[in-house]
Design a protein around this nucleic acid. Structure first.
Lengths: 113, 113
DNA sequence: TCCTTGTTTTGATGTGCGTCGAAGCAGCAA
DNA sequence: TTGCTGCTTCGACGCACATCAAAACAAGGA
């Protein structure tokens, strides 16, 4: 994925954001701006070993398999998680670079000072 | 607004998130998961004095007044900004509590350690 | 009072997205 | 090969949302 480099960590809230950058950042925020995806993210991040297979995740929701798969795809395409197939199962893990990048963007000027 | 207390700052990515909490947090992330609203936020935060009137904001976009007003309402109802009328103009400013709360949620476990 | 300017609300329209069932694909074991 | 399980893609449905024009509302000035 090639989105990480551009996200990086300038203090966006201290200067006006360009339209292009707002589109990139909004993609990440929109991905986690959905309750199911937020819970998926926290389930993966807090799972033993820092990774979880889809079978660990579907049980936590009253949703169909395709729906869970769809949400995982959105998180994956936003660069927030990544999946790896090992034998029968696919294991997902968090990409902390993306999270820390967008997290730093939100830090208000007062906190930075 | 009464949303701030509940948002607070437990390390969400270290333990599974409850469905209720995911809904509260997703509301904030969804609000900033839109390019126009992200830019509005950065314009307000970086404006002189930490606040900006709507007339300062509409000029930065090729969007109608009602559309800008709509996005400001979404940000306001998410607890991210607040507005105050002084005479003819309404001034908006960022509520840093909300931003730092959701920002800390995103901090990955590795960074906290 | 009326008029003007600034801002929000209303109503309508087109697009985006969450959800599902069904079908498809990948890997493993008989 | 056949069958089974885990996961994803496809196609469709219904609702949510971004956008606009028009109307309504708020405040100040003539």
């Amino acid at each position: 994925m090639s989105k990480q480099e551009e996200l990086c960590c300038s203090p966006v809230l201290r200067e006006p954001m360009s339209a292009e950058r707002s589109v990139e950042l909004a993609r990440v925020f929109k991905a986690i701006g959905e309750p199911v995806r937020l819970r998926l993210l926290s389930l993966i991040a807090s799972h033993a070993g820092g990774e979880a297979c889809v079978c660990d995740l579907t049980g936590a929701f009253e949703l169909s398999g395709p729906t869970i798969s769809h949400h995982l795809k959105v998180l994956r395409e936003a660069g927030i998680i990544e999946g790896e197939r090992r034998g029968t199962w696919i294991y997902y893990r968090v990409r902390p670079e993306t999270l820390s990048a967008v997290s730093s963007v939100l830090t208000p000027a007062e906190v930075l000072a």
